[in-house]
Design a binder for these strands. Structure first.
Lengths: 354, 354
DNA sequence: ATAGGTAGATAAAGCGGTTTATCGTCAGTT
DNA sequence: AACTGACGATAAACCGCTTTATCTACCTAT
C-alpha cells in the first residue's frame, strides 16, 4: 500500500519521469530510455509491487477510464424485467474486455432527477442509457457538458447515438406469422406509449394485416404495457366482451405481457394455443418458461448491449463508426404458443442492417 | 466546462482555500470565514455553475466515494437468475441514497481472475461481493490491501463481514411444511455444492425429518443445482426409477430448479401438486410465474442487498455495527405447488436475528 | 576546432483540489 | 504601552502522476 512512482524511481535510481514513461510504454514520447534503464525500472516496480494510482493518473491526463450506465426506473425494470439484465450482460461482456470500468446508476423512485443526473459529475468519460425517458435530464446534461453517450432504445436523432432493433419488422413478423396460421381476428396488447418501441411495433403489425387485406379495428388495439399484470388485466377486459368479439390470436407487447394474457385466457377456461394463439416479444430466457413456451419475436438484446458499449468506447477513442444509429435485425422464434408447429426454426427479418 | 475553484476564488475575490472551506461547509476546519465572505463565494460559485472535480478531490483526500460490486459469473447468474437482480436492486436503493457511487464488475468466463481482481485497483473504497467463490482472488486482494468488504452469501469468518439468511431454518421450514401435509417420501434436489447455502438447507431439511421420525435415505438427496435445466434432469432421473420409489414431494434447490422439476413431472404425465408436491427456495418474482405458483421459502433478498450496502458504508464511515455477520430470517410463502391450501399466508421463521 | 545533432535522462510545471502553517489586525488585559 | 488571543483570511505544501522544457554528454560533419 502506498507505493508510489517516487519509491520506484528511488529504487531504480532514476527520475520519476523516467518511471512514468517506462511503465506506460509510451512510444510517441519525446523521452527516450535505454533498454538498461527500462529494465531497472521494471524490476524495481515488480519488486515493490507497484501499481499506479488511477486517480492521480486521471487528474493528470483528464481521462477517467470510467463509463456510466443509466438503467431505467429500478422497481419496474431491473428487478423484474429480464430485458435489462440481458442488456447489462452484453454491456459487461464488452466492458470487461476493454480498459474501462462501469459505473452503475438507476433512476429510482424517490430520487429527484437532478440528483440522478449528478452521477455524471463523477467524471465518467461516456454514458450508456437504456430506454431513457423522452427528455431525460441526464441526457441533456451530457449534451451540455459534451459527454459522449449512446442510448439503447431511443429514437435516433442528430444529437444522439442510438442502438435499436427493427421494431417495425418485429411487428410485421408477428402479424405475418399469425396471418399465415389463418388468424384474422387478432388483438394487439400495446406497449407503454412512452417507450419508443411501442409505436413501430404496432405499425409493422398493422401493415402486415393491411397487406393481407385483414381489417384491424381500433377496438383491437388495447393499451397494455410491459409487465404481466397489465397483460392480465387487458386480456381479462377483452374476454369480458361478448363471445363473438373474442379474438383468436393475441400479439402482446412483450413476453411478460404475453404471460399475463395467457393466464387471463386460462382463467376463462380457454387454452393456448387451441382457443387463442399468443405471440410475445423479446425472447429472453423467460419466454421458454411459460406454459406453453412462447412463440415470440427475438430481439438481439445481448448484442445490443455489446454494440452500444463498443460504439461508446470506440467513440471515446476517436473513431467514428459507419453507422451511429444501427438498427439490429429481429427474427421470429417459433415455440408452442401459436400452435402451427409445421413452422419450425426461426424466421429471420429480411432487413439486416448491422 | 473546466470551471475550477480558482475561477470561483477570482470572481469572489478570495483565496482558493477560502473557497474550498466554504463550499465544503467544514465545521471543524481551523479556517474561519465571515458570513459575508461565505456569501460572496456561494454566489460566485452559483454564477459560474461551478461543480467540484471529484477526481482532484479524491487525490487530495484519499477518498473516492466509490463502492465496488462483484457479481458472480455472468453467463450463469446475472442474466438468468432473478436472485442477483434483486440483490442488485437492494444495493442500488441504498447506494442511491448515500454519497457513494457503484462500480460494477462481473466475473466473466474468459477473463482471468487476476484481471477481474484488478478492478479493485481502481481505488474503490469498499467492495460488495455476491456469492464469492471459496478462495476468491478478489477477496484475498481486498484483505491484502486492507479494503473493507462485505459478502452476501459467504460463510461467516473472522476476516469477512457477511450477510446471510437463515438457510438452515429455510430447509427446516420446507421439511416441516411437507411433513405437515402428510408427505414422508420426499426427495431433495440439492444445490450446487460450492455455493454456501446448499449444505445448511440440507441440514435443516434433514433435521425436520429426523424430528418427525421420518427416514431420509441417501438416495433421496439428489445433486442438482440452481437453474431449471439441472432441476429437470435430476427430476427426470428420479422418475426413471421404478414407480414404488417415486417420492410424493420435492424440496428443490431454488425456484428455477423447482420449475425444472415441475416440467419433468408434467412430462411424465403426473401433475403438481396432486401427484407430487414441490417446494422451491428464493421467492423472487419468478416464483409467481410457474404453473402452479410455487410454495417456496422466502429469502429477504432485497433486504440482504440493502443491508450489505448499509454495513459497508457505515464501516467506511468508521462505525462498527453490533453484528457483522447478520443472518436474516426466512419464512415460508405458501402458494399452490404443494396443495394444502388450508395453510394460507406465510409462516415466519421463529429465529429473527437482525 | 567548432557547430550541430542526437541519445538519454532530469527538473519542474501542471492537473484541481485540501489542509497546515503563517500572517495581519483589532479588541481586551495588565 | 506592551502583550495576548481571537478572528479572518492567505500562502504554500501536498496528493501521485504526466508531460513539456531543459540539460548533459558524446558523436559527427565541416
Amino acid at each position: 500500500m502506498g507505493i508510489t512512482i517516487k519509491d520506484v524511481a528511488k529504487l531504480a535510481g532514476t527520475s520519476v519521469s523516467a518511471v512514468s514513461v517506462a511503465l506506460n510504454a509510451k512510444q510517441n514520447s519525446t523521452i527516450r530510455l535505454s533498454a538498461a534503464t527500462r529494465d531497472r525500472i521494471y524490476s524495481a516496480a515488480a519488486q515493490l509491487g507497484y501499481v499506479s494510482n488511477p486517480i492521480a493518473k486521471s487528474l493528470a491526463t483528464g481521462k477517467t477510464k470510467v463509463l456510466g450506465l443509466m438503467l431505467p426506473y429500478a422497481d419496474a425494470f431491473i428487478d423484474q424485467n429480464p430485458f435489462c439484465n440481458q442488456v447489462l450482460t452484453g454491456i459487461m461482456q464488452e466492458v470487461v474486455h476493454s480498459h474501462y470500468n462501469l459505473m452503475l446508476y438507476t433512476a429510482t423512485s424517490g430520487i429527484p432527477l437532478d440528483k440522478a443526473a449528478m452521477f455524471i459529475d463523477s467524471r465518467v468519460e461516456g454514458v450508456l442509457f437504456v430506454m431513457p425517458p423522452e427528455n431525460s435530464s441526464a441526457i441533456v446534461k451530457c449534451q451540455k457538458l459534451g459527454i459522449p453517450y449512446v442510448s439503447i432504445l431511443q429514437r435516433p436523432s442528430e444529437s444522439s447515438w442510438t442502438v435499436n432493433s427493427d421494431d417495425y419488422m418485429g411487428g410485421r413478423l408477428a402479424g405475418d406469422h399469425l396471418l399465415k396460421l389463418g388468424h384474422t381476428k387478432i388483438v394487439h396488447l400495446k406497449g407503454n406509449p412512452d417507450v419508443v418501441t411501442s409505436a413501430p411495433r404496432l405499425s409493422g403489425f398493422q401493415d402486415a394485416l393491411i397487406s393481407a387485406g385483414v381489417e384491424l379495428p381500433d377496438a383491437s388495439i388495447i393499451p397494455a404495457g410491459f409487465d404481466w399484470r397489465v397483460g392480465y388485466e387487458a386480456m381479462t377486459k377483452v374476454l369480458e366482451g361478448p363471445r363473438i368479439t373474442w379474438p383468436t390470436a393475441i400479439f402482446a407487447a412483450n413476453d411478460l405481457c404475453a404471460e399475463g394474457a395467457i393466464r387471463a385466457i386460462r382463467a376463462t377456461g380457454l387454452s393456448v394455443p387451441e382457443d387463442i394463439a399468443v405471440v410475445g416479444y423479446d425472447d429472453t430466457w423467460f419466454s421458454t418458461m411459460t406454459q406453453p413456451p412462447l412463440t415470440t419475436v427475438h430481439m438481439p438484446i445481448y448484442e445490443m448491449g455489446e454494440l452500444a458499449a463498443r460504439m461508446l468506447i470506440s467513440r471515446l477513442e476517436g473513431q467514428i463508426p459507419d453507422d451511429i444509429h444501427p438498427v439490429l435485425p429481429v427474427s421470429l422464434t417459433v415455440r408452442h404458443s401459436c400452435g402451427g408447429s409445421a413452422l419450425t426454426g426461426t424466421q429471420t427479418s429480411p432487413i439486416s442492417i448491422q
